[in-house]
């Protein structure tokens, strides 16, 4: 049953991160609010991907797909923002 306990723990961490995002938005962090929100969102996404979606134990191929997607998103965002 330790797996269930692990999933529950992950769930609670996600909720805590959510509370942190919402909470932080009521303080003025001098322009860093959005950055903090995005960092927290990325952390939540990473937790969901590794724990719920079992990215870490799924072998090399899924990680290849994620890496490729990351690279291509970087190209899309980077070059479009440069091109403006």
């Amino acid at each position: 049953m330790s797996d269930i306990r692990k999933l529950t723990f992950v769930y609670l961490v996600l909720l805590a991160l959510l509370a942190l995002t919402v909470g932080s938005s009521s303080f003025d962090l001098g322009g860093f609010n959005s950055a903090l929100n995005l960092v927290i969102a990325a952390a939540k996404a990473a937790i969901i991907a590794t724990m719920f979606m079992q990215l870490s134990s799924g072998g090399i191929l899924p990680r290849l797909a994620v890496a490729a997607t990351g690279l291509w998103l970087a190209i899309l965002f980077g070059l479009t923002l440069i091109g403006r």
């Binding site: 995002t21 919402v22 609010n33 959005s34 929100n37 995005l38 969102a41 996404a45 969901i48 991907a49």
Partner: peptide
Amino acid sequence: HFVDIVWVFLFPILYLIN
């Protein structure tokens, strides 16, 4: 889970601007 991740990004981007 992926659809969940999308919302995890949409929520702060849409609801929490400054």
